[in-house]
Write a protein that binds this DNA or RNA. Structure first.
Lengths: 343, 343
DNA sequence: GAATTATCTTTACGCGAGACAAAATGTTAA
DNA sequence: TTAACATTTTGTCTCGCGTAAAGATAATTC
């Protein structure tokens, strides 16, 4: 690192012996200049520590190398995990990911999109809350910025959607539960924040029907993201009142299941698939902590990595072709049954 | 919203009837212009939807309104929780938080600081990995940008540090455990990534000494952030080999404790403070899921909100005074004992 | 109502790059 | 060697806004 700090490309042009426009080309794409020039530049770079001013660069470019990533709630391990995958995939592709959490608040989602807009992102990856009211916003946003949805679908919004095939995954779980014991009841939130919850309920109903079993749905009241608390409170009530017509419960997601497991434990009810157990509890998502519940949670693993990578690669495909997709794409990955001890 | 989109301040000056320099003043500080002008501007704003170009603004200002927030791993609920608090506090103060996770990788921490540097942040809040090797980097970074550390301290780096008083919190737990049963052994990682772990071990030793009890430390091998897995594997070994000299274990953090709880469950060992239980397990941090472990985890709650708010307010104090603190500040908040069922 | 301020408008330049022209080199192939 | 092509240099314009100076208007004071 030399002493006199380089303040702009002009000065760096002097010390590197390369003209400014060529430098500009180099910083946009190192391969676009002659090898000898490139080497001269990179040599100078080693001793002079200069990098183009981000703000000046982006001022003149209509579009930046920023990729916005918006998730509804980073405090939920599902989203922090998938957010991580997405972020790393963007970095690997040479883009600058900007990860924003809406902290469980739909109005913050709008704010996030709004503030992203002023950052002129090349594209945005959005895991939406999925309320009907958002649809117009999202479509409107997509009008200016390439947008790929993941996790939760919003009809006809965004260039593409990538998520898990809830019908396959729930059917897989129902199939397994029916084969290995009594058919499952379904436990979910009464007013789910997430459209996947509705798909899963529907999938459960269809699957039970296909198996010739009677469906039983239990819904917990309560708002917000305290799924464990809700699962625990409502689970305790259900277990106490012996409301369940079968000894098996399929929870709409792992966090509800975790809450219910803790309720069962409190009540001294043994959970699991073994003979001495009184009830089986299964979840969905393969939450990072599901392996360490007591007993460990039988669940459906979503393919985080596949979803993240597909979402990112789809977005990049749109960016590189520089035009919208001819047709909106929907990609659903299969869930994988993870048999642990709870069911 | 009017039809002809406003492209820059010049055009907005025309439609609002206010000169461009005055508009510039307004957008920097709405109170700096005459009320009548302000009203004219805000009326025009309602019908014309214009906002200054972020990049152009920042190009001319040496410093931005960005606050960088760097945490070692967002997948760890502790950091996603405290990150959330910090982010919201920044928003409330009218700054733009930029939350970056180093994904458990110290070299990404350097990258994150590096990329923050080019965003000319007004200040940075950093929860460092805390390795000795980082110290120089961090100091060097702080040379240009106001920096407040939180969670993990690095000596003499940053304007200030805000965290939990591990000596108080561990002593509190040891005190409680000694009063209510057998004195605790201590369970931790052999090569902790976090300096707090070292403080906690030290605190345990001192506290046990003060209570006239013999200290027993058990260390688990293994690297990385899979604390539950490590706690589970090593916990199973300890429990199987009946290596523990007392029936009480204090884990260095909740995630280790969660792993150990699951191991105990697998082995059919009853955990808790009740008479029929064979072992007590306590943690530290009040991890969001600790309430839902089986049994629920007795632990120390760190005051997330207080730490976050103090870190943010300290940074803002530095920013507003526009000079470094006369003396480096260290603020430690007390932990709170959360008595649940596991100990 | 005149004098004094406070605020505004006009005008002009600067920031650090991207973009593009024309001219000047360098490289390659015949 | 030379024509043909590829790359670089030189020079100039642009982007959208911060900012300063000078003069013009308003608001405030007595």
């Amino acid at each position: 690192m030399a002493q006199p700090k380089i303040r702009n490309m002009e000065e760096f042009a002097v010390v590197s012996g390369i003209s400014r426009p060529t430098l500009s080309k180099y910083f946009n794409d190192p391969d676009s200049v002659r090898l000898s020039s490139r080497q001269k530049i990179e040599t100078a770079l080693k001793t002079h520590d200069y990098r183009p001013n981000v703000f000046a660069v982006n001022q003149n470019r209509g579009r930046t190398k920023n990729i916005g990533i918006v998730v509804p709630n980073l405090a939920d391990p599902f989203f922090s995990e998938i957010g991580r995958e997405v972020e790393l995939a963007c970095l690997k592709a040479g883009y600058s990911p900007i990860l924003l959490s809406s902290h469980g608040n739909p109005s913050l989602e709008r704010d996030n999109l709004e503030s992203l807009r002023s950052l002129k992102p090349a594209g945005v990856l959005l895991a939406p809350f999925g309320r009907a009211s958002d649809k117009a916003d999202i479509r409107n946003f997509n009008h200016n910025v390439p947008l790929v949805l993941f996790d939760a679908n919003v009809e006809d919004a965004g260039e593409a959607f990538v998520g898990t095939n809830n019908f396959q995954s729930i059917d897989l779980m129902v199939e397994y539960l029916c084969r290995s014991g009594e058919p499952p009841c379904f436990f979910e939130m009464k007013t789910p924040t997430n459209p996947n919850a509705n798909k899963r309920r529907q999938a459960y109903l269809e699957s039970m029907d296909r198996h010739g079993q009677a469906a039983h749905i239990f819904q917990a009241g309560g708002d917000g993201w305290n799924f464990e608390a809700i699962g625990s409170v409502e689970g305790e009530r259900m277990l106490n009142q012996k409301a369940l017509p079968t000894n098996t419960v399929l929870c709409s997601n792992d966090r509800l299941a975790i809450g219910m497991l803790s309720a069962a434990f409190e009540l001294g009810i043994r959970v699991g698939h073994r003979a001495e157990c009184e009830i089986r509890i299964a979840g969905h998502d393969d939450h990072p902590f599901s392996r360490y519940t007591c007993p460990s949670l039988t669940t459906i693993a979503q393919d985080y990595a596949a979803i993240a990578n597909r979402a990112v690669s789809t977005l990049f495909r749109v960016l590189e072709s520089d035009e919208r997709l001819a047709e909106r794409e929907e990609t659903l990955f299969d869930g994988r049954l993870v048999m642990r001890d709870s069911a």
